[in-house]
Structure formats: structure tokens, C-alpha cells
Amino acid sequence: MIAVEIAGIKMKTPVMTASGTFGSGPEYADFVDLNKIGAIVVKGTTLAPRDGNKGRRIAETPAGMLNCIGLENPGVDEFVGRILPGLARYDVPVIVNIAGFTVDEFGELAARLNVPGVAGLEVNVSCPNVKEGGIAWGVDCANVAAAVKAVRRNTKLPVITKLSPNVTDIVSVAKAAEDAGSDAVSLINTLVGMTIDIHRWRPELGNVTGGLSGPAVKPVALRMVWQVARAVKCPVIGMGGIMTAGDAVEFLLAGARAVAVGTANFVNPRASVEIAEGIKDYLVERGLRHVSEIVGKVNDNI
């Protein structure tokens, strides 16, 4: 009833975990059955190991949070050699979020991830917390297309492009990704924001600005998913502030074929599974047989 296939990735539920909020999965295994999650999108992975940003990395905001982790990760070789084997005992698709700093790096990351156990790649052209790469890619259609093409050339795996909301026209970026060979798009990454400590007259975050996530961003995310889903043919994975099954249903109605849960994992480690169960209940209550029956069905001809 809620099983879906996104760009060839078969998922038991349409609820994935968003990159950066769920580690590589086993971190949460004490609290939630990883086998019941649609797909796990692992933390952004780069070619070389990264220490991430200095100073304070999170700040709480009304109904949300800012983060500026700065893509701390052990590097792709460590991921493939040490972390990925530990995921083999779970029956859940593993999608690796990859962040390059040059076109060649995107291509190289894709090549090194042509290994058993990886179900797909999410091309991160939208990290707001690194000085080069990241968002610098995601705000420019030609750059996004170049990164996606480099990945496409080096992999047969499904390619998902994760889009930045920090742009004037997200639809044109989504189209550029699709035209460059992306099999799906996921959105939104975080919105750039900041907080200031009024006692010290300083930014709270070590990186000054950070990415805003949580329920506060949901209306913006939903609007962008709705816009993009009407404009592209490829599947859209919707995310941004989903806390409940009702939130997820909104994204599905807006045109997302799957959703991802991010910040909600911090509040409720079982969120990804409970939201999937809630979607099922929603369908049953309405006599619907499959989740696809509500995708894009918002009646917006008002």
C-alpha cells in the first residue's frame, strides 16, 4: 500500500531519512527498526575526510534549528571500507549523499561508490555551510548540470539531485538537473539563516550563518515542491520540516512521490517509521489503496 519505487530504488515506505540527520543509520538502531525505513540517505560524503566547521554548530530557533556542521565526514574511502559493510545486515536501501568541490570530484565520488550496498547517489549541490562547492554549485543551473553530468558519466546507479532553496527560481535549477541526467530531485536543503547573541553581540554559530530546518521551513519547502513537481517529469522527493504524517501527506499531495524526514529524527527517533504508519492510516481511512493515488492530487485550480 505504501511501497514505492523512486528512480528504480524500491522502498517499503515513501519515507526516507534526510542526509545529515540520521548518520549512516546504525546510530539510531537502538530506537528504531532500520528495516522499516523507506531508504536511508547517509551523511554528506566528500572525497577527502573533513573536520567540519569550528565553534558552535547548532542553534535553536522558533520551531526550528540552524546548523553549520560543515560536511564533517570520514571521506568516501572510509565510508566504503568501514561504514558501508555495517549496513549490509539491514534490509534498507542506502543512498549516499555526495558533495564535491569540483566537477571532477563529483565524478570521482560517483566512481568510488560503484560498490555493492549502494542503492543510489544524492548529488549535494546545496550545502550552505562550506565556502567552496555546496551552495556555490546549487545556485547556478550550468554548475548543477555539470556536477550531475559528471556523476551520470561515472555511475549506473540512480542519481538524485538535492536542490537548494536559496535561489531565485528553483524550477529552473530542477530542470537543469533533470536535463543533465538526474533520475530524481530532492528538495529542499536548508535555508540560510543566522542568530545573534544579544549579550555578547556575536553570532551564535561558529560559522556565523547556518542552515535552517524544522517545522519553520515547511511552508516554503511545500511551495517549492509543488512548483517543481509541476515542472519536471522525474520523481520529486519532498522534505523540509516534516514532523507528522499529516505534514508528509501535504508534500505527497503537492506532488512528491516520496518524502524525507530530517530534523524530526532529533525530536523523535522513530519519526520516519511512525510517519509511514500514519500515511498508511490516512489512506485506509479514505478507502485508498495506494499512496500513489494522492501524489500531486492537490486541487489547486481555484
Binding site: T21, G23, E27, K43, N67, I69, E72, N265, F266, P269
Partner: peptide, 8 residues
């Protein structure tokens, strides 16, 4: 944020 080693 997470308390379990996921968010870094």
C-alpha cells in the same frame, strides 16, 4: 541535536 552520534 541528536544525542546519538548522527548529527555531528
Amino acid at each position: 541535536a541528536c544525542g546519538v552520534g548522527a548529527c555531528l
